[in-house]
Nucleic acid binder design. Structure first.
Length: 234
RNA sequence: GCUUCGA
């Protein structure tokens, strides 16, 4: 199974989804048993709901549905290909939820523009003794930015600083993004300057944020500066 | 060989 999962996931990562699914089919025909890594690899190759449902059935038949990593992948896929309700159904049934489960659910709520549900999930995970991590905070910030909730974003910002998580690029960039989308140029620049390093994504958040804040000339200035630091615009 | 976030 480990050699099958390696080759299936390699194809899935390279975007060769059909080939990955064919290999999975071949593996079954040859009578090899799937383990959790095979399922994770083949789930990555699923681009339609019907594929996901089919694999989900196989997972249930194998009795592997209660494995956290599998459940987490299912939450993500149902959110992206089906509906928030279906994602939540998997989330609710999962008994050994971890931070990734909650992060995935929060990102799912965000995708559907449900800030209140995202915040509720954030609150409940802490009630359940699951520690929020950097991914949790970056996801919650994106939820705030998509609905322009700067006041809530600031409260989250304080919790981030308490843990020094603003020093991580993903969190720092999400902060910059949130302030930019909410129109606070000062806070946007402050978040950007606190980043441990800059990459193409953080530059993008800065430039888009300047535009959002009504400062197109500043955006142009940073666009030049970005190229001066060797980044090619994407 | 392994799931979630900043585009």
């Amino acid at each position: 199974a480990h050699t099958w999962s390696a080759i299936i996931s390699a194809h899935a990562k390279l975007g060769k989804a059909e080939t990955a699914l064919h290999l999975y089919h071949k593996m079954m025909v040859l009578g090899s048993k799937s383990d959790k890594y095979v399922f994770l690899a083949v789930l990555k190759a699923c681009s339609t709901l019907s594929h996901v449902k089919l694999i989900h059935d196989h997972i249930i038949q194998s009795g592997l549905q209660s494995i956290v990593m599998i459940g987490n992948a299912m939450i993500d896929l149902y959110a992206k290909l089906s509906s928030l309700e279906e994602a939540r159904a998997v989330f609710d049934k999962l008994l050994n939820r971890d931070a990734v489960s909650c992060n995935t659910m929060i990102a799912a709520c965000t995708q559907y523009g449900k800030l209140f549900q995202a915040l509720d999930c954030f609150k409940k995970m802490q009630g359940d003794g699951i520690e929020p991590d950097d991914v949790t905070f970056s996801s919650i910030l994106i939820a705030c930015s998509t609905v322009g909730a700067m006041k809530k974003g600031r409260l989250i910002h304080h919790q981030i600083v308490e843990r020094d998580l603003q020093l991580l690029v993903n969190v720092g960039t999400a902060l910059a993004d949130m302030y930019g989308k909410c129109g606070s140029l000062i806070d946007l620049l402050d978040a950007f300057r606190s980043l441990p390093y800059r990459d193409i994504v953080s530059w993008g958040a800065l430039i888009a944020g300047c535009v959002q804040c009504g400062k197109p000339h500043l955006a142009m200035k940073y666009f030049q500066e970005m190229q001066g630091e060797g980044f090619t615009p994407n």
